[in-house]
Design a protein around this nucleic acid. Structure first.
Lengths: 178, 178
DNA sequence: ACTATTTATGCAACTGTTTGCATAAATAGT
DNA sequence: ACTATTTATGCAAACAGTTGCATAAATAGT
């Protein structure tokens, strides 16, 4: 009930092959919804049966056809229907929080926290670069551009928050050592 | 590679039956790892085979035995081994972010955002109450208590961040309407 | 020329998770 | 007394997602 919709959003921005979609999931959409190419191909086939997407398959002698998927009116309709449903609250399945709560090895948690902090810093830098590059005038955005911008802002908030939490964890662990 | 560990953490705090665990997952651990009772029973059986937990089954004539699960030394060992592994970065599968990015219906997104904001406010209030009640002197915490406290702090950060993002989304959408 | 990577698609097997169903005693509410 | 809820466990089917494998042409690097 969900990767379908992520694919519909991607295809509503621009038509793409399964391969293209896999790369777009790796790049931007993957920040909030990861998917492998195998999974994408499987789901695309199902969506084709549902009539949410159409494909113009290009024969390539010997090889499997190259298919570009296009969202259909029925697909846009489904996207709209789903958008109007209240969204389920996202339960972050957090390995790290489980680990922290268990607190089985303080020094291992400390180094893992430092590693994660560095990841957050790197991702934040990438997001902020995108923000500057693609959205220099955020107050003028409308429609899908506004949506993409606000999604990116969510990522920025998320990473900053992650850094602040890591710092608090490190302070807490260091404090307990004395 | 994960619900097992969440159960080990829960059992390291205190032994419990499958039913108890399901309730504890509903209450506190469920904030970062949801699990149904069916899943918990299945995983407990597997963990028993692995020797990570032991059970003292109490015969109850006619009914299924009542089982209390206790973590074994092998279980504690596995918890320690896992704690020392670097944790996978949590990919929040966020329905809402997909929806926001698609931006298929601004007014639906606006009301969904308001609804989510209210949820964040309510959860934050519950977390803050726990914080005051159970951790009045955070600087004095050590070991598992410190871990639980820092996990709770993560939840507080997460909810505050969620509220801030919702506010930004609402400002953005309202701005675009004029 | 040879080699490695990228483009491009997909099946199969496995693991994980959810949903629906079933059972049944104990307890609390009316 | 009757009814509803809570306690307590679990199977089975369906669905979702991951991992491993396979194919093969085009392109880029040495």
């Amino acid at each position: 009930m969900a990767i379908e919709h992520a694919i519909l959003v991607a295809l509503s921005e621009r038509s793409a092959s399964g391969y293209d979609l896999a790369r777009r999931f790796d790049a931007s959409i993957g920040h909030f919804w990861r998917a492998t190419h195998q999974q994408i191909y499987k789901v695309l086939a199902r969506m084709d049966e549902n009539g949410w997407v159409e494909t113009d398959a290009v024969k390539r002698n010997g090889r499997l056809d190259k298919k570009t998927y296009v969202i259909t009116p029925a697909g846009r309709n489904e996207l709209l229907r789903w958008t109007r449903e209240p969204s389920a609250s996202d339960v972050t399945r957090s390995d790290f929080t489980v680990k922290l709560r268990g607190f089985a090895d303080a020094s291992a948690i400390k180094s893992d926290t430092m590693r994660r902090r560095a990841e957050h810093v790197a991702t934040l830098a990438a997001y902020e670069e995108s923000e500057q590059r693609f959205y220099p005038n955020p107050t003028e955005l409308t429609g899908a551009d506004l949506g993409s911008y606000l999604a990116l802002r969510g990522g920025i908030h998320y990473e900053r928050n992650g850094i602040a939490w890591c710092d608090e964890i490190l302070t807490g662990i260091n404090g307990a050592e004395n």
